[in-house]
Amino acid sequence: MPGDRGGTPQEDGADASAQRHDGLLAVRAGEGDEEAFEELMRRHAPALLRLATRLLGSRTEAEDAVQESFVSAWRKLPEFRRDARFSTWIHRIVTNRCLNVLRSRRPSVDLEGVPEPQAPEHEASPSRVAESHAAVADLSRAMAGLSPEQRVCWVLRELNGLAYETIAESVGISPEAVRGRVFRARRYLTEAMAAWR
């Protein structure tokens, strides 16, 4: 088959063609083509898993969230509009699913009880690993104090590097509201981390 199978969906160069191939696969999946859906998942699952892991701070919960998002996407695909971007659509589903998980988790949040992220397996000097591990641990502890809405906007902005407009589209609020949330999150994090150092 001709096309763009080699490129990852994230690559800007292959973006237009990847998007078009996504569109074709989404139409087929909407008509009940299971293999097309499987390929869509293979193309998007790694990035979505990374996103959900960042949003939830837990790989296990992220797997569940992404898995449930795909099942609901399969059920909703027959109504998927051809002109919409599959990638935007599935990102929105996963983001909202994670937001709901964060919300349901809220009342029991215990800052000390937040699991630390696994030590990154990185080929770097031991001191650098220790230093970065400590920073990551501090940050993830501080992030637990953000509201679910702030956390989602902040992660999409700072860890995923998305534009405010893109986040707005993904979360379903105005870009101004996203800016407000990211600002509040930054202010909270700077203060929380200053207090611990």
Binding site: M41, R42, L49, T53, W74
Partner: peptide, 14 residues
């Protein structure tokens, strides 16, 4: 991240 197990589980449902 390796998502192949996840994809397999969703396909079981699909």
């Amino acid at each position: 991240p390796d998502a192949s197990a996840l994809v397999g589980r969703v396909m079981d449902v699909v």
